[in-house]
Nucleic acid binder design. Structure first.
Lengths: 200, 200
DNA sequence: GGGCAATCTTGTCAGTGACAAGTTATGCGG
DNA sequence: CCGCATAACTTGTCACTGACAAGATTGCCC
């Protein structure tokens, strides 16, 4: 209200150094908070700008538009997922890591599999996605095909579907009943053991 | 602007009978089209109103707000899913029906599992959801526990995760590569056979 | 220290969701 | 057949949002 621009005890404009320093990271962080709390649809570029203490048009300079921001988040997510999957010892471990990733990075996970919000043609996204795909493929083919003679392609789809479905239902609170207060990753491990080693 | 209300050669207001007849159904149908094409985020109440040829505030009378519309769609979806699951012969059949449902009603399916867009407290939604849950539970417990001694709860989560993951990845075009031009339902059937009958 | 590009700001416009208040049709009791 | 309560729809408005354009500020490199 007061039009005085004295830099004394003002709130906003005084100590803001015009160049934020790492606005891109700040926006990303705020966006992840919002998405984890209320989903991607609750995300507003102007709100993120307010949280970062910058003007309403600042985010556009780093992400172009809404889809650009979400695409960047998705790409980051696929990169993180690829790293996580590489750390797994075997196929079952990869599944557990997949579920853990979804729980530890719910915002990333949601955005990664939300087509229509992403800029499909984005190069960075495609690269990261391919990286994660390779990691998953390697985890599948690394398992010796002793127990089961079926092709790796089908087994890969099965493993991915199982882990992805479990993670998705978990995040959407559809497993609150069946899983209860147990550790979801442990439940998934049992479940994978049951299915993939049924005959053994 | 022109105050003449002559019903002669006008465009909009002439043949519109003020009461649409079944506006609720018309809005729902248009919404399903839009969602199937561009996802729930591309949905605009005003656009739906335009498509139905009514004023921009008309939809609110039937659905209160955006969340109300999406909640109605989700409830309808769970009802349809319950019906579909009841028609399956066995657990594997239920899985196949689950995947088929996702393919035949992609808009419903997307909205049903999009938390944050739905009005969680809604009674109609909760009822329909419970109905579908019962149908799925019945499908799981109906299978004779001969082949596998593990509890039905775990098997239920496994079956649901597998079907849901497969359907989700399918709709998000993440299986375009592995599945190729094969019939997705047939692929899922093979996949389920492989996992659930591995030891047999 | 001078210019240049990246970064951020201000200003603006059309589109949207939500709400309030008015208008028109429908159906029901008398 | 009439009146009236109510459902169905309209018009008008407000705050908010995303996108864009043009200008201001700053760090940086030669």
């Amino acid at each position: 209200m007061s039009s005085s621009k004295t830099p004394a005890g003002e709130k906003k404009p005084a100590d803001r150094p015009y160049h934020h320093g790492d606005l891109r990271r700040a926006i990303l962080g705020a966006a992840l908070d919002v998405i984890a709390a209320d989903g991607p649809s609750a995300l507003s570029l102007r709100d993120l700008a307010r949280r970062a203490g910058v003007s309403h048009a600042a985010p556009a300079h780093h992400f172009k538009d809404r889809a650009g921001l979400l695409t960047a988040i998705a790409a980051e997510g696929f990169g993180l997922l690829a790293t996580t999957l590489r750390e797994a010892a075997d196929l079952q471990g990869a599944g557990v890591h997949y579920v853990r990733f979804a729980r530890e990075h719910p915002a990333h996970f949601q955005v990664m599999f939300a087509p229509g919000l992403l800029r499909d043609g984005d190069l960075e996204l495609a690269t990261a996605r391919a990286l994660a795909g390779d990691a998953l493929r390697d985890a599948v083919t690394a398992v010796p095909p002793e127990g089961r003679g079926t092709d790796a392609r089908l087994a890969g789809v099965a493993a991915w579907s199982l882990a992805h479905g479990f993670a998705t239902l978990l995040l959407s609170h559809n497993l609150d009943g069946p899983v209860g207060d147990q550790d979801p990753e442990e439940v998934f491990r049992e479940l994978a053991t049951m299915l993939f080693r049924a005959g053994e």
